[in-house]
Amino acid sequence: MSAQSHSIYEQAILFIAALVVFTSFLMLAQKRLSGMIHLFAVQGAMLAATSALAAYTLPYPHLYVSALIIVVLKVILIPVMLHRLIARMDMRQDAEPAYLYGYVMMAAASLVMFSYYVVEPIAQLSTLATRNAMAVSLAVVLLGMLLMITRRQVVTHVIGFMAIENGLFFAAVASTQGMPMVVELGIAFDVLVAAIIFGVFFFHIRSSIDSLDVDRLNRLNEVEP
């Protein structure tokens, strides 16, 4: 099946799918926190666009609502919150120390291939034209995990976590025309609450170990060595 056999909307959804993976790659390459938050907002905007496109082409108007929820939550509210957090903690210019750029990128590219091979037999079962995007969404989930594994900053972990959620949402839109409204609302508020709780935790971690470097959590002893 070539690109032409899809309608222009399906092509657009697949196109955005590729861009979503690309933003995940950019997040992995990004060393500064503020840049990463911007990228997270961009990824959210792409998700909202996919959702709106799916709502336009399929007879599922509730996807417009989920697009709206994404715009409000992931493009505006959570990024603004994170920006204010890192501004308050004076981490706006903090860069990741000693980061193995090349290895992480290679690992990320192989994860994309891996997710393609894992998803391919499953995708054969679907009849949707956008089923190929399932591999992409699994890749976004795995890249989010990679982001969490390779970084030390807690704030980055939160962004990686949110990126995983983005991937799951993308899988839902691409493979099943969106989750039921109740589930979606529940997840959306879960994410929001998670973001707030993370914010509280940042301050907690920082006040107890005087840093947001996760590696230092390993050295949390009663007696200083």
Partner: peptide, 23 residues
Amino acid sequence: QEFLGFAYLLALLGMLSHIILEV
């Protein structure tokens, strides 16, 4: 090397997205 590594990554992503999304 970072600049050209990024170029290679872009090209690789292009090929991957052809295989995953356009076939």
